[in-house]
Amino acid sequence: MPAPDRSLDARPARPPRTSPWMGVAAILVLAATQAYSISTSPAEGDMGHLQKIMYVHVPAAWMTFLAFFVVLVFSVKYLWKGREDDDLVAASAAEVGATLNGLTLVLGMIWGRPAWGVWWVWDARLTSTLVLFLIFAGYLALRAFVDDEQQRARWSAAVGAIGAINVPIVYMSVKWWRTLHQPPSSPATLDPAYTMGLRINAFALLFVMIFFIRKRYEIARLERAAEHAAEAAALGAP
């Protein structure tokens, strides 16, 4: 009688499952906050309705920072404890973060063309934000190239932890250097009519981001379990 297999039994039989309804709810909340802020906020004095791009561009930038912070925390945790799950959380946050970073850049360009007159300039803010996107992309490319799980986890954790240095650089770029991009707005420089819309959309996008990171992590867990099972089968259980 062969003993039942060992390696897989250490993992929970049923990995946590985020309900798809959480995703539906997150998207609905985001749609509602968008509709609310677009319909209630008045045309801005200088740029008219162009200002409304703010309701996605700015929260997307904030969530990009937050996603990279998750990558940082779980990369450091992986390097410290070596738990496979931490590597998978970091990778999931990096995928979602890269998407939000891309969204920030694209919306910024669409905003810049009519407001500034140019799609793109190589000022410190735009350049450092592009570099952040390239770090995300490099992190994900590295994962795709390395076959060995432990090596991939270790190398990407190093890139994730070191690459996070760029997040404060992006944020501070408009304060440290002279740029075309304006410095951050605050409730003091923003009419209350716009502040509320910005805040609720940030929360809505946070909700969406949490859903996608969780979902991606769960999928990564399932993929990993399938790989382990395939390996075990290939090695031929006695």
């Binding site: 906020s41 008045p42 045309a43 801005e44 004095g45 200088d46 740029m47 008219g48 200002q51 703010m54 407001a115 500034w116 007159g117 140019v118 300039v121 075309l180 304006q182 410095p183 951050p184 707005s185 605050s186 420089t189 923003l190 009419d191 009519a193 716009y194």
Partner: peptide, 23 residues
């Protein structure tokens, strides 16, 4: 050869009776 507008970080709704500029 190239002209760019630099916006400040202020976003203000026009005051009552004022139109938003379509500059």
């Amino acid at each position: 050869t190239n002209l760019m507008v630099k916006h400040s970080n202020e976003y203000r709704a026009p005051k009552p009776g004022e139109e938003a500029h379509e500059k």
